[in-house]
């Protein structure tokens, strides 16, 4: 058996120390083949649990699960108005005219609160995701995003994006059927590592849409409308 297969088995069984495990998680995030080997070992070992006698849970556990998921639904309702606004803007940007985009500018918008506590626990099958957004022209500089499911980190690489001295960009993740969530301001020529909150990290998957808006240097005034959409892209698995 190769070292990689042994490592996969050790990860599946959780034999390593927490430090070693964390280091290996980073490797997992970069290495879908290793993640597949871990999944295979997990599948091999899971039948061991068959020998345990099933234990019916207390009835309130299901009620709590329902309540947790129902609450998430209610949160989405509250945020729907904001989501709709950015969607309208997106559609107009994608289809359309400068006039429509200008009209969209007057729509009010409040960025959703961003970070919550708790690291995401990665799904071993989640691959590393990437997105590349052209800034300016299609062949011009690009904003590169890499999402590492192991750590829940989103790495934003804007080193090659030139600054014009008067604008920064704001990055948004468009969560399916939910709200667009601001990842904050991306200054030209910089790199950032954003630690995604667990509930957001769970929703990051291939195909998730990413939007870049143009903002005044240092960001829009608090509570102000977001700037115009300048680029969109989608995550894909690498």
């Amino acid at each position: 058996m190769t070292e990689r297969e042994l490592l996969a088995a050790e990860l599946a069984l959780r034999l390593l120390s927490e430090e070693e495990h964390a280091a290996a998680q980073a490797e997992l995030a970069r290495d879908p083949e290793l993640a597949a080997l871990v999944a295979q070992w997990e599948g091999r070992l899971a039948p061991l649990a068959d020998e345990l006698e099933a234990v019916p849970p207390a009835p309130q556990v299901w009620q709590q699960i329902s309540a947790s998921l129902g609450q998430a639904g209610a949160d989405n309702d509250n945020d729907r108005r904001e989501a709709d606004l950015l969607r309208v803007r997106l559609r107009r940007w994608q289809w359309g005219s400068a006039a429509a985009a200008a009209a969209a500018l007057v729509l009010g918008f409040l960025g959703a609160p961003l970070l919550r506590d708790g690291p995401p626990v990665p799904d071993a099958a989640t691959p590393v995701l990437a997105a590349s957004l052209p800034v300016g022209s299609e062949n011009g500089p690009r904003l590169a995003l890499t999402y590492l499911p192991g750590s829940g980190d989103l790495v934003v690489e804007a080193s090659s994006v030139p600054g014009d001295g008067i604008h920064d960009h704001e990055l948004w993740l468009v969560v399916p059927d939910g709200k667009p969530v601001s990842m904050g301001l991306i200054a030209s020529g910089t790199q950032r590592r954003i630690d995604l909150p667990a509930d957001l990290a769970r929703q990051v998957d291939a195909g998730l849409e990413v939007v870049l808006t143009r903002e005044p240097l240092g960001g829009a005034p608090k509570g102000g409308a977001p700037g115009p959409v300048v680029a969109t892209g989608k995550f894909w698995a690498i």
């Binding site: 597949a36 997990e42 599948g43 091999r44 989640t126």
Partner: peptide
């Protein structure tokens, strides 16, 4: 949506 057959059975995935 992320459950894949490579993971073995559904119960195995949940147990994992």
């Amino acid at each position: 949506g992320r459950f894949r057959r490579g993971h073995g059975s559904a119960i195995g995935w949940l147990v994992t």
